[in-house]
Design a protein around this nucleic acid. Structure first.
Length: 594
RNA sequence: GGUUCCGUAGCUCAGCUGGAUAGAGCAACAGCCUUCUAAGCUGUGGGUCUCGGGUUCGAAUCCCGACGGGAUCACCA
């Protein structure tokens, strides 16, 4: 629609002023609501070729379009702005096309589609997931859906940090204090149980540090010499050496954690196509680094440690292998990348990782490039901001970490409370009520985290909790349920939807809704280019807001003009369709009733 | 200090590939349910878009500088 009008404008300029203008030089946008019209052309850029005053230029182009472009029914000029009113038939045609398109807004994935791998989640196995992980998981999942909707093959992947000193700490504490406790014996979810021992370790460690400092050691000395940290380090050495007992305990406790994570992931509605474990990839990374060393890309210091010199690239020197030969985070990421690119034919690798690791990925990109991986320099670090509390960062020491399982529980409980108060779900079965409240509570949480620009830090206030009114998930879900209710009633009462008539007289609100619906594909495309779920969220909110105004101002089923009633039903049906498709890109479900 | 991201209403956020009088939600106040779901709709108040320069017919948006805040620059991950 806009394309056609742009072409007509180009024609107009050619015919009126004999000049060729490029489409990109034209600015055609939605007309602001305080002016009449649907689309607005800004004519200032055309003054160079028209050599006339803005008003005259706009007037001339407007007259030409009205004359020669069937879509343009009328126009008005205000200063340098040419407001175009489109023919009613345009809206009907557009709505018909949307209605007929069962895959509206999405591009199909084909055999020849590029393959995008999206890494997200990437938990440590020593503690349960918190609010920050929640943002990560929802962003990663949503991004994957958006990329799929843009016609890319997507492989969702997770790298589990299952080895290292952190898990050894939990293991040591469990051996000391656990008395053989298991998730079964305690009834505690596996990831939480292991997390409890991680906390217990820290408590012991702190106590020992304090004791040593009282004996006159410096803080650094105390930290290094505390017996419990030495035990953990010793355990890590045994793990690396393949000690059977340590490995068995490690396996056991990690499995508890995985069972817990699986439950959490399932509830969040996220999943993975391929999971990598650091314990499998770190050796590959080590090998790659050694190869790089032989090729002279890296160098070894006298103490045996291996480094990359990135000072020529404007960065610092980076450690790749410790002097004792063990690997660091970067080494593992090199290994993981190596494995992934041998497993899949990856065209684009996207890492969903917090912005605190910007430097890490800058370095990773350079190192992969130096090692000869063609994908190195164009890997994408999807860098998102932190979730903070009103008083600042979450701190485990101060017990302010918001646990994701607890938060999901709270959201669903709140949804249940509100539903009961409003009596919205009376008459449904217990199961239906529970399912609906799950959808609403999770919808509120997900929308809250996804509606803000991923790059920005965001604030979560636990006291005020998450709203269910206004710009929220439930508001959108509610609108959907309302539409479904109308559509159900239409069906029950045998209302027939006739073919839409081209000469319908539509209100501004109706035409505006069609215009907004028609923008959905462009929004999906833009969200794909910019890797931005928030653009989808903001679009849906805008659509829903408009629809609610329409719903308030107009009758649908009670409209006596049959042609108009049909139009409104088809309009409503497609608003529901776009809400549902848009929300699916955010990983949010919509309820039939609420 | 180097690098980097950010600064819009009391609060949480849109808008940022330059376009008309900067928008929502929350909170406050005032209205709207005998009519398709009031988790809704309507209205009121609330702003030197951190500040200062520059580019432009036009700047919240682009450039430079200052100020303020976050992140990072580990033989942690």
């Amino acid at each position: 629609m806009e394309e056609q009008i742009l072409n007509s404008v180009i024609q107009a300029v050619k015919s009126l002023y004999g000049a060729d203008v490029d489409k990109s030089a034209l600015s055609l946008g939605k007309t602001k609501k305080e002016f009449t019209g649907d689309l607005t052309l800004v004519v200032f850029p055309l003054l160079k070729v028209s050599r006339q005053k803005p008003e005259d230029t706009a007037e001339a182009i407007g007259a030409y379009l009205k004359q020669n472009c069937p879509q343009v029914a009328d126009y008005n000029v205000i200063k340098g702005f040419l407001n175009l009113s489109l023919a009613q038939a345009c809206w009907v045609d557009t709505l018909n096309a949307i209605d007929a398109d069962s895959n509206f807004g999405f591009k199909p994935v084909t055999e020849s589609s590029p393959l995008y791998m999206v890494e997200y989640s990437s938990p440590n196995t020593n503690k349960p997931l918190h609010l920050g992980h929640l943002r990560n998981n929802l962003l990663g999942f949503s991004l994957s859906k958006i990329l799929e909707a843009n016609g890319y093959k997507v492989v969702k992947t997770n790298i589990v940090n299952d080895r290292g000193i952190h898990i050894c700490k939990s293991m040591i504490a469990w051996l000391k204090h656990g008395n053989g406790a298991t998730p079964e014996s305690t009834g505690i979810k596996g990831d939480h149980l292991v997390g409890d021992y991680y906390v217990a370790f820290d408590k012991d460690y702190k106590a020992q540090i304090k004791e040593l400092m009282e004996k006159g050691l410096s803080e650094d000395e105390a930290k290094a010499q505390a017996p419990i940290i030495k035990e953990a380090q010793e355990m890590l050495r045994k793990w690396e050496a393949g000690d059977a007992e340590v490995r068995a305990l490690w396996q056991k406790m990690n499995n508890w954690v995985y069972a817990g994570f699986d439950e959490t992931y399932k509830r969040m509605g996220v999943g993975f196509d391929k999971i990598y474990y650091e314990s499998d990839t770190y050796l590959v990374g080590k090998k790659k680094v050694e190869e790089g060393l032989e090729k002279g890309i890296f160098y070894r210091r006298p103490d045996g440690s291996v480094w990359a010199d990135l000072t020529k690239d404007g960065l610092d020197e980076k450690l790749l292998l410790r002097s004792d030969g063990t690997s660091v985070y970067m080494t593992q990421d090199i290994g993981t990348a190596t494995l992934r690119f041998s497993d899949y034919n990856i065209d684009k690798m996207i890492y969903v990782v917090g912005n605190e690791q910007n430097y890490h990925f800058q370095v990773l990109s350079l190192l992969l490039d130096k090692l000869g991986f063609s994908f190195g320099k164009d890997l994408v670090h999807f860098s998102y901001g932190m979730v903070e509390l009103p008083e600042g960062k979450m701190k485990s020491r101060e017990g302010t970490v918001v646990d994701s399982d607890d938060l999901m529980d709270e959201m669903v409980t709140t949804a249940t409370q509100i539903s009961k108060e409003l009596g919205k779900l009376d008459g449904l079965t217990e199961k239906e009520i529970a399912d609906t409240c799950e959808i609403i509570g999770m919808g509120a949480l997900k929308y809250f985290l996804l509606k803000v620009d991923p790059r920005k830090n965001m604030v979560f206030n636990p006291k005020e909790s998450i709203d269910f009114n206004g710009n929220t998930g439930p508001f959108i879900q509610y609108t959907y349920a309302r539409i479904k209710s109308v559509l159900r009633k239409a069906e029950e009462s045998g209302v027939v939807i006739s073919d839409l008539q081209a000469d319908l007289q539509l209100s501004d609100k109706e035409a505006g809704l069609v215009q907004t619906l028609a923008a959905f594909p462009a929004v999906v495309a833009q969200a794909g280019v910019e890797y931005s779920p928030s653009q989808i969220a903001n679009y849906i909110y805008d659509l829903v807001k408009q629809y609610n105004q329409f719903y308030h101002d107009f009758q649908i089923l009670k409209e006596e003009n049959e042609a108009l009633r049909s139009f409104r039903l088809v309009l409503s049906r497609n608003v529901a369709k776009v809400i549902s498709r848009g929300m699916s890109l955010l990983g949010i479900q919509v309820p039939e009733k609420m």
